[in-house]
């Protein structure tokens, strides 16, 4: 009976692991094969990897897309970390009844579906396109702005600030630091792991964001990686080897971030619900 249970558990978990990993294996095998081999269901590594990469870089504008996505993700992450940590710190350390009420209202914005505000946002950025083209329609700035401040990250930093030793704030004040000085000189260095976790989540969200860039970006040279892959995926005569190469390249940054910072990643996810 006990043994049977063991066998069942291991079989079940192994099946789950295979189902989870299989698409990745298939992707990795496909980038080494010709498109024809991929459609014939070849599951063995081939010799076409370099060929596929060459075709990809020659026929698809993947480099500009990587650069666009990189710029957007990095700026979004920096802005998010700065603004959300300032706010999370402010709401927790400089706590007051008024701020608690405002905080609750801000949290409500997490329930707003993006599809509901997409059209007004589009019109808003459209109306400033002429006066401020850097943040108008079809600009990277317009992609960044609405995604750089979200209540989620404020909540995240506030939750983590609960564990920040408040005595340090007093100590800093006694040492003559200004309120902002306390934040930048004491809080920021102490909360490194929280920043790391938030950076990972923010970077991944931004790197993978699809709907808003799809709405606001128009010219092909401004395309981000998800827009490019979506475009490749909907072509009528797909070259599977090449498309899979693009997908693997697009997935590499987030996969690397995950494997290098696994602990922070899980800690970050949990930090968002603790408390």
């Amino acid at each position: 009976m006990k043994n049977l249970q063991r066998i069942f558990i291991y079989t079940f978990l192994s099946l789950a692991a295979i189902v989870s990993i299989f698409p990745f294996l298939w992707m990795l095998v496909s980038i080494t094969n010709k498109s024809v081999d991929v459609t014939q269901g070849r599951l063995l590594p081939g010799t076409h990897l370099i060929e596929n990469m060459k075709t990809l870089f020659a026929t698809v504008d993947i480099v500009p897309a990587l650069i666009n996505s990189g710029i957007i993700a990095v700026i979004t992450t920096i802005l998010t970390l700065l603004l959300a940590s300032l706010a999370g710190y402010g709401f927790e350390i400089h706590r007051s009844r008024g701020k608690d009420i405002v905080f609750t209202i801000l949290l409500l914005s997490m329930m707003i579906p993006f599809a509901a505000i997409m059209v007004p946002l589009y019109r808003m950025f459209g109306s400033i396109s002429d006066t401020a083209p850097l943040i108008g329609i079809d600009s990277l700035g317009a992609v960044i702005l609405p995604t750089a401040t979200t209540a989620f990250f404020i909540f995240f930093f506030r939750q983590n600030t609960k564990m920040f030793p408040k005595d340090l704030v007093e100590a800093g004040r006694i040492d003559g630091l200004s309120e902002l000085g306390v934040f930048f000189r004491i809080y920021m260095p102490t909360m490194k792991t929280t920043y790391a976790a938030a950076a990972i989540i923010s970077f991944m969200n931004s790197w993978n964001n699809y709907l808003w860039p799809l709405v606001i970006l128009q010219s092909p040279e401004k395309r981000t990686i998800p827009l490019l892959i979506s475009n490749l995926g909907s072509s009528y005569s797909p070259d599977y080897g090449v498309i899979m190469s693009a997908i693997v390249i697009a997935t590499l940054p987030t996969a690397l971030v995950f494997f290098l910072m696994q602990k922070h990643f899980v800690a970050g996810m949990m930090g968002s619900v603790k408390g």
Binding site: L83, A84, L86, A87, Y89, G90, F91, I93, H94, R95, S96, K99, V102, L106, S109, I117, L121, L145, P146, A148, T149, T150, A151, I154, E179, F183
Partner: peptide
């Protein structure tokens, strides 16, 4: 204290 939170409040209100 409000200075710390004001930018986020404005941004979330606008966006």
């Amino acid at each position: 204290g409000w200075l710390f939170v004001i930018v986020s409040i404005i941004a979330i209100t606008i966006f």
